[in-house]
Nucleic acid binder design. Structure first.
Lengths: 193, 193
DNA sequence: GTCTATACTGGGATAGAC
DNA sequence: GTCTATCCCAGTATAGAC
């Protein structure tokens, strides 16, 4: 059981978040103990509290980081609704397939957030949805989209696109490009672009 | 579910399942204790074990019952793909809006099932998906649907329809009929029916 | 910075009284 | 059929040694 002691602050902090991410995604926030996270990192449970004030903050930081990255990583702005919608759809799929664990947590662990944290995450989510709805509205105004209800179409399209993460497997029948093509085809049909 | 010998309680058993359903949906399986379920029922924790062998079985029975009901409640069979697809879409939405707690659990708590139980639930889910895909394939064969990939369309449509449960609120802007109409319109466009 | 040790709380499940 | 009492284990988090 002899192990090296010393300072590893620069690597241990990220490792804690990575371990929490992996375990929360796989087994759920409530089902994962701090001891288990510590074991995954290769550290004693008490040492985790050098890197996070508590378990709740560990979850919240993961979710907030994910939502902020999602918003920062992509902002459509060509002004041409069809091009913006295609960019949104392809980016959404690519981004979500690249981060299956974060996506899973962001969707599944909302109810395990403290009320204040929940509100903050929900606000970020709303901003993302609003971005898609703005594209749809612009397309309707331009006459290039035919959409009875842009709010419902927004929710329907996001649910459809996010659903990719539930069945996509690396090395499966279809690659990311092919999946992106097929989903963009379906998205386009929904709005009749 | 295995009852203990000589049980005559006809109301407590169902109450236990109702309480578990409500609490699992609201807070998650892992976060809910047997003591909490017992308190909700108005009984001591030990008494729960008269009605279920353990907590896992409580979860499994809820999920299996839900999936079996979903399959039993609806089997399209007109042979006309467009009519069958509309019936599927409208039924899926109605059924899911009627049972938000069960739907939530069925999607969120899969990872908390023991391996054997997981396999059984997955098999039921697969049967449901296959039903939709059969409709899509029939429509393609008949030339009334235009679908590049029926498997992906199946997953996309189910994700889209199920997504209704994430935002629909009773007494909101749109009633169930209106929501059903708008979603059926989107479904139809996806398959170009 | 990480360790061991521990405080304190709560978990699932069982035994046996009534 | 439900109760109280209890076993045993695990949870989060902290204190203080090294």
């Amino acid at each position: 059981m002899a192990r090296t002691q010393g300072s590893h602050a620069e690597t241990t902090g990220p490792k804690v978040r990575e371990a929490a991410l992996k375990l929360f995604a796989r087994e759920g926030y409530a089902a994962v103990s701090m001891r288990r996270i510590a074991a995954e990192v290769g550290v004693q449970a008490g040492a985790l509290y050098l890197y996070t004030p508590d378990k709740q903050t560990l979850l919240f930081d993961l979710m907030r980081g994910h939502m902020e990255d999602l918003l920062a990583d992509f902002a459509p702005g060509s002004g041409r609704p069809v091009a913006d919608l295609e960019a949104f759809a392809r980016h959404h799929i690519r981004y979500h397939l690249d981060r299956p664990d974060l996506v899973f947590i962001a969707y599944m662990e909302l109810r395990n957030l403290d009320p204040d944290n929940f509100r903050e995450i929900e606000a970020l989510r709303r901003r993302y949805e609003d971005r898609l709805e703005a594209i749809l509205k612009a397309g309707v105004a331009d006459g290039v989209f035919d959409i009875p209800d842009t709010k419902l179409a927004t929710m329907a399209l996001i649910a459809m696109l996010t659903g990719v993460t539930t069945w996509y497997r690396e090395g499966g029948r279809l690659g990311r490009e092919a999946v992106g093509d097929i989903y963009w085809d379906m998205v386009r049909k929904v709005v009749r672009a």
